[in-house]
Simulated scan of single mutants.
Amino acid sequence: MEQQMMKRMIQKCFLQYEHSVESVPLNDRDYEKLYSEIMERYQRNESAEIYELVEDVVYEFLVG
């Protein structure tokens, strides 16, 4: 999946967790780390829905 599209999905997920566009606490390295984690999980389970993987990874980032 294209990395820019994934970045927008990650941003939207942060908005669901009550962050504003300005308060999304990520730099480029964080986005790369989240993207890598999402893609790794997808490769292990290609039947998974990408949006569910994004939500899981973002949630873990926020609570971890």
Rank of each mutant, 00 (worst) to 15 (best):
Q11R: 15
Q11W: 11
Q11L: 13
Q11E: 15
K12Y: 14
K12A: 15
C13V: 12
C13H: 02
C13W: 01
C13L: 00
C13K: 15
F14Q: 04
F14L: 05
F14E: 05
F14R: 03
F14D: 09
F14C: 01
F14N: 05
L15T: 10
L15Q: 13
L15S: 03
Q16D: 14
Q16M: 11
Q16R: 14
Q16T: 14
Y17W: 05
Y17E: 10
Y17L: 06
Y17M: 12
E18D: 15
E18H: 10
E18S: 14
E18A: 14
E18Q: 15
H19Y: 15
H19N: 11
H19W: 13
H19L: 09
S20C: 03
V21H: 12
E22D: 12
E22N: 12
E22T: 07
S23R: 09
S23G: 07
S23Y: 05
V24K: 03
V24T: 05
V24I: 15
P25W: 01
P25I: 01
L26A: 02
L26N: 02
L26V: 02
L26W: 00
L26H: 00
N27T: 03
N27L: 04
N27C: 08
D28C: 00
D28S: 08
D28T: 00
R29T: 13
R29Y: 02
R29C: 02
R29H: 04
R29K: 10
R29A: 08
R29D: 09
R29E: 12
D30F: 00
D30M: 02
D30R: 06
Y31I: 01
E32N: 06
E32D: 07
K33S: 10
K33E: 08
K33D: 10
K33L: 11
L34G: 02
L34C: 04
L34V: 06
L34A: 01
Y35A: 13
Y35T: 12
Y35V: 14
S36D: 08
S36I: 00
S36T: 09
S36Q: 04
S36F: 00
I38Q: 01
I38T: 05
I38E: 01
M39V: 12
E40Y: 12
E40G: 11
E40D: 11
E40C: 10
R41A: 11
R41S: 08
R41V: 06
R41T: 07
Y42K: 14
Q43S: 13
Q43P: 00
E46Y: 03
E46M: 11
S47G: 05
S47L: 08
A48I: 04
A48R: 12
E49C: 07
E49A: 15
E49M: 14
I50R: 13
Y51M: 07
E52D: 15
E52W: 09
L53P: 03
L53S: 07
L53F: 06
V54T: 10
V54I: 10
V54P: 08
V54R: 06
E55A: 11
E55K: 13
D56K: 10
D56T: 15
V57Q: 00
V57N: 02
V58Y: 01
V58W: 04
Y59E: 09
E60S: 14
E60Q: 13
E60G: 05
F61N: 10
F61D: 07
L62M: 14
V63A: 01
G64M: 02
G64S: 10
G64I: 08
